[in-house]
């Protein structure tokens, strides 16, 4: 069954992805100036793994998040199908 992009699951996963991405940005900037902080590095790696898993799940259901080889696509080509980010 084609997952309808406007269902609840779509927004939940997007919000979770946004939460993970924000924490990853914070940790990344923090680690730029604290290269030896092992605990933060472990947290960063753990969040990265979680984020990749979630992104793959999302892309499996609703199509690619990024293009130009950063995500797979089913047939027919999914990249230029709606909804676009600004339509969501």
């Amino acid at each position: 069954m084609e997952a309808n992009p406007c269902d609840q699951r779509y927004y939940e996963m997007l919000e979770q992805l946004q939460t993970l991405d924000f924490a990853l940005v914070e940790l990344n900037l923090y680690l730029n100036t604290h290269p030896d902080d092992l605990r933060s590095i472990e947290q960063f790696n753990q969040l990265t793994q979680e984020r990749t898993k979630l992104a793959n799940q999302f892309q499996e259901l609703y199509g690619p998040l990024q293009n130009f080889g950063r995500a797979y696509s089913k047939c027919p080509w999914e990249w230029n199908q709606t909804p676009w980010p600004w339509q969501v």
Binding site: Q18, T19, F22, A23, E26, L27, T33, D37, R39, S40
Partner: peptide, 21 residues
């Protein structure tokens, strides 16, 4: 001046809401 390591952190949802970890 220099952020000490191992500061207490927000939960991820809170971090997104408050705008800092």
């Amino acid at each position: 001046t220099f952020q000490p390591p191992d500061l207490p952190q927000f939960s991820l949802q809170e971090a997104l809401k408050y705008g800092t970890l």
